[in-house]
Design a protein around this nucleic acid. Structure first.
Length: 726
DNA sequence: GACCTGCTGCGGGTTG
């Protein structure tokens, strides 16, 4: 469409129109046209959802800046909340280009920015501020005298990578911070969320403004019918000879990666940092043996910023062919240009994540997106367990790809209590105001704020618990103040993040930091280490400075990294797996071996009559499968455990020891005939309930309350148990 | 089987 005919274009400020002109754009994209109207109407929130990074930032900021240029704000006019420092730096440069002519100053604000630049940002009127949630938290705590003035004429809050926040502690913190910004500004500031395409957009609008008190427009860009080329490749190893043959499977996978990825830019998602190191090392040594330059580089969260940026630069510049083996570090919007293909080692953690990863491939017009998935299974044999015979990894990968093609992906997970982050926000609010009336605190955070699931009774109980631990204290007039311990917590710089990080040891060679290992990894001088895709000898370990010196070597051993929890599989994925197992239809995207694996799985399913025979007998054990997500499975697991059954859960497969199918069925019927236990009764006996940052300040009662919300599905569990006995 | 993200103020040294 010629620009003169675009009414949206005409609505933009002349200075923004000039910028668009200079870019040589011939028209505004579909989502940009729609966004201009929604954003210029200042009484609503807007979510802009698109699968690739291209254009989302401009879509939000061009109209938002237009709006600012027509008003005359005194303090910050647009607040951009962005999850990564690297993304802030990216966006800063792009926005500077847009606003240079308009003389609208842009400021980047995060931990690596100097204090003098931060002061300048606060004193420059009408500016755009790009900030991390943690730095915004610090702003509330440290600069509270100025904060009212700073946000007085704020016109817009923009949240980048909205999907990365939903359902997390950090996301809860973000919701609370946005609400506190509204409180300080004295009005509802319209919000814009930039997001990857999510399964259910209603969850995203609920997240963007917790009480939906402003209307929210959702602007979605269509996938554009991009061609997708997929292959699932199967690999087997003998279960008797686990170590040696495991080696040969990895050799085969890395051999195929070497052959297919060399000569172009690619990403390989390896699911764990250890697998990233393993494959990078194999690929580098294969390159050495073949006497060709190495094109494979590792990328994960424990590598130093320098090493990661080097890999990102190589990808972006496209001067030398580069394949990066990574964890989900390269899933978010960091600019790495386009890659030819995406490899996925093992089944992906979720369909949503797979969707993001594929979005990295074939980003140039007309290019297909290419995905190769590599799956390892045990070699066929009678000694295989039911779970192994069902080839769950292969079937899960197939199910996830089928769902992706159908356009489905996981909606954000339901809200937890987030008591840890509630404590943080309560302490932060008290620090911000220098003391807070309890009724006002409850009203701000819970009554009208995003912690609406915390009722007055629970709030009062929490205050008592925190007072007993000297985190809080009360003045004679009832005002909440920070206690002795509370002050120590808030004063330390680690307070601003909603999450904790384990203590780390730096790995250094020749004065250069390669990255870090968690302190629990045993460091033995004179032993070997594989790290950052290279091999090292550990020369010395300075325990006080938490510093390991290494030098290049030939030998090597893979490091262990402390992992956080795995991904939760959604109901829909397991349902699709069941469909796949019961079907006879040909799956065109499997290679020979993967096809054979699927045939074995379907034969085993049929052979054991899993569709009809609900509980199987295996020696002295009873076995059954539940084709529902991890929440249902975990709930059933707890219900059986509560009845003192020796139950074991692996994926969707339950093994109950020392019981026949008949008596297990009777026991389950007994459970169903009794009063169904409340979630809080099921989690009572669990250990390690307090996994979040400030959970250590809670008592048993609050820990149980926290654990019972969001991670159980009693209704689903009862329905499945009835089916098992039916 | 198993990821990722973030951080202030102050004191001391160096450079213009």
């Amino acid at each position: 469409m010629p620009r003169s005919e675009s009414r949206a274009f005409a609505l933009l400020h002349p200075s923004i129109q000039r910028w668009i002109w200079k870019q040589g754009w011939t028209n505004l994209r579909d989502i940009q046209e729609q966004a201009v109207r929604s954003i210029l109407d200042c009484n609503r929130d807007v979510i802009i959802s698109a699968s690739t990074a291209g254009g989302k930032t401009e879509t939000a900021f061009l109209p938002a800046i237009s709006d600012v240029l027509r008003s005359e704000p005194e303090g910050i006019s647009i607040l951009g909340i962005i999850p990564l420092k690297a993304l802030i730096n990216d966006q800063y440069q792009r926005l500077e280009g847009i606003t240079r002519d308009a003389e609208l100053p842009v400021f980047a604000w995060h931990g690596d920015i100097s204090a003098s630049k931060k002061s300048k940002a606060l004193s420059t009127p009408s500016s755009i501020l790009l900030i991390t949630p943690e730095s915004l938290e610090a702003l509330f705590v440290r600069r509270h005298p100025e904060i009212r003035k700073v946000f007085r004429s704020l016109r817009r809050v923009v949240v980048d990578e909205l999907h990365a926040f939903i359902g997390t502690e950090r996301g809860m913190q973000l919701q609370s911070l946005m609400h506190r910004v509204d409180l300080v500004a004295g009005k509802k500031i319209p919000r814009i969320g930039l997001s990857a395409t999510l399964g259910d957009m209603s969850k995203a609008t609920e997240f963007l403004r917790h009480n939906n008190s402003l209307p929210c427009d959702v602007i979605e860009s269509k996938m554009g019918g991009r061609e997708l080329m997929v292959q699932v490749r199967g690999y087997t190893c003998s279960p008797d000879d686990q170590d040696a043959s495991d080696e040969s499977v990895w050799q085969a996978i890395s051999g195929h990666l070497f052959k297919t990825l060399r000569g172009s830019n690619n990403l390989a998602f390896a699911n764990s940092r250890q697998n990233v190191e393993l494959l990078s090392d194999k690929l580098r040594r294969t390159s050495d043996l073949a006497r060709v330059p190495n094109e494979f580089f590792p990328h994960h969260g424990s590598l130093s910023k320098e090493i990661r940026e080097e890999a990102e630069d190589r990808l972006r510049k496209q001067s030398l062919p580069t394949s990066v083996i990574c964890t989900n570090t390269l899933e978010l919007g960091i600019d790495i240009g386009s890659v030819k293909s995406v490899a996925q080692i093992g089944s992906p953690p979720s369909v949503a994540s797979l969707c993001q990863r594929i979005g990295r491939s074939g980003r140039q017009e007309g290019d297909p997106a290419v995905l190769r998935t590599y799956i390892r299974e045990a070699e066929w044999g009678s000694e295989l367990s039911l779970a192994e015979k069902l080839r769950l990894r292969t079937v899960q990968a197939v199910a996830m790809i089928q769902l992706l093609v159908k356009g489905w992906n996981e909606p954000p997970i339901p809200n937890r209590l987030h008591l840890s982050t509630f404590i943080q926000q309560l302490l932060s609010s008290i620090a911000q105001h220098g003391g807070l009336n309890p009724a006002v605190a409850w009203e701000n955070l819970c009554g009208k704020g995003p912690f609406s699931h915390i009722d007055v009774e629970m709030f009062k109980h929490l205050l008592k618990v925190l007072a007993a631990k000297e985190v809080l204290t009360q003045a004679d007039d009832g005002t909440l103040l920070l206690g002795r311990k509370g002050e120590r917590i808030v004063e330390h710089y680690s307070f601003y993040a909603a999450f904790v990080s384990p203590e780390e040891i730096s790995i250094v060679t020749d004065g250069k930091t390669l990255g870090t290992l968690t302190a629990s990894f045993p460091i033995v001088p004179n032993s070997f280490l594989i790290f950052a895709g290279k091999r090292w000898l550990i020369k010395s370990f300075d325990e006080n400075r938490k510093l390991v010196q290494v030098s290049p070597a030939e030998g090597g051993e893979l490091p262990k990294f402390d992992g956080g929890g795995g991904a939760m599989i959604h109901d829909k994925v397991r349902e699709e797996m069941k469909v796949c197992l019961e079907s006879e239809s040909f799956i065109p995207f499997l290679d020979g071996q993967a096809s054979e694996l699927l045939s074995q799985a379907r034969a085993a399913y049929l052979d054991m009559d899993l569709a009809n025979r609900k509980i199987l007998s295996s020696g002295s054990k009873s076995i059954f499968a539940i084709w529902k997500g991890d929440r249902v499975c975990f709930t059933i697991f707890l219900m059986l455990q509560k009845e003192n059954l020796a139950v074991d859960l692996y994926g969707p497969v339950f093994t109950v020891n020392k019981i026949t199918p008949e008596s297990l069925s009777e026991r389950i019927q007994k459970i169903l005939s009794q009063k169904i236990p409340a979630p809080i009764d099921l989690v009572r006996g669990l250990e390690n309930k307090g996994t979040e940052k400030f959970d250590y300040l809670l008592d048993e009662k609050l820990l149980n309350a926290g654990a019972s919300v969001g991670c159980l599905d009693i209704e689903g569990a009862v329905r499945e148990l009835k089916r098992i006995c039916g």
